[in-house]
């Protein structure tokens, strides 16, 4: 089906497994169990889903949730046209119809009443009621629901409801340990291992400050950015400041500390 093709992941994305998540995910998919990916921003959640969709050969539909999102944005809505109305499927409905993996990124950002629409899809019924159309869609046999959720920075108000949480199997993601993260950076960008290891060290220094002035440490994503800049010819210290220290904070003390970590790691003087 061309509709399926459109959402297929055609080239193998690079994904470095951190543990047994690939096998475990396959098992969850085999049973069509809904999956929740927990972890801080930029630690590889999206990449993982992409990789799994490729490996399983299933289409992937990703929705980045936000606070203005309503149920209709997921399910679909009638469009008003001059000569009447026309129904348009939302991404969730499309995924359920064509048998895609539907990845709702940062689901807590969406308002709580929105999250309720996914409930019937997550239990044994695997159905999606479309109230406005009076239609009940049975999910395609290949359909699977995946959500991501970052327990770190959201306020208490934004926590997922227990009734939602308890419908998912869950994976805990975190920034990989140093050697692995170094490997990811080298493979992703082609930067030499020694420099990559230093970038990771700086990122870890920032992660130690989480909760002490930083909401989030430096993500793997930012480390990859810095590595990319260095590969592009930017001096390491500049790349670190630009891609890793500056984006995450405006706090002068923290910035001074990270700058020091950068200088201490990339020794400016010849050894």
């Amino acid at each position: 089906m061309s509709n399926q093709d459109q959402y297929k992941v055609h080239r193998e994305p690079f994904y470095q497994a951190q543990g047994r998540e690939v096998i475990l995910y396959e098992a969850a998919y085999a049973a069509r169990l809904p999956v929740m990916l927990k972890g801080p921003t930029g630690c590889g959640k999206s990449r993982f889903v992409e990789y799994m969709a490729w490996k399983l050969g299933k289409p992937l539909i990703t929705v980045a949730c936000n606070e203005d999102m309503t149920a209709s944005d997921l399910v679909g809505r009638y469009l008003l046209e001059a000569n009447g109305t026309r129904w348009l499927d939302g991404p969730l409905t499309t995924a359920a119809r064509i048998g895609a993996i539907c990845y709702l990124d940062e689901i807590v950002e969406a308002r709580q009443d929105t999250t309720v629409v996914i409930h019937p899809l997550t239990d044994h019924r695997r159905v999606l009621p479309i109230d406005k159309k009076g239609e009940l869609i049975e999910a395609h046999a290949d359909f699977q629901l995946v959500i991501s959720y970052n327990p770190g920075y959201q306020s208490l108000m934004k926590d997922l409801k227990q009734s939602t949480k308890q419908r998912f199997t869950a994976f805990d993601f975190d920034y990989p340990e140093a050697a692995l993260e170094t490997l990811i950076v080298t493979k992703e960008t082609g930067l030499d291992e020694a420099s990559a290891a230093r970038l990771v060290k700086i990122a870890q220094a920032a992660r130690n400050l989480k909760g002490h002035g930083l909401d989030e440490g430096i993500s793997t994503r930012l480390v990859v950015y810095a590595a990319t800049l260095i590969r592009g010819g930017v001096a390491p210290q500049d790349a670190c400041r630009m891609a890793m220290a500056r984006p995450i904070t405006d706090d002068a003390d923290i910035r001074a500390t990270l700058d020091h970590a950068i200088d201490a790691t990339f020794d400016p003087s010849p050894a």
């Binding site: 923290i254 500390t257 990270l258």
Partner: peptide
Amino acid sequence: ERRLDLYLRALWR
């Protein structure tokens, strides 16, 4: 003081 606290935490845990 705060910078030193941050230094200890960030670079040396």
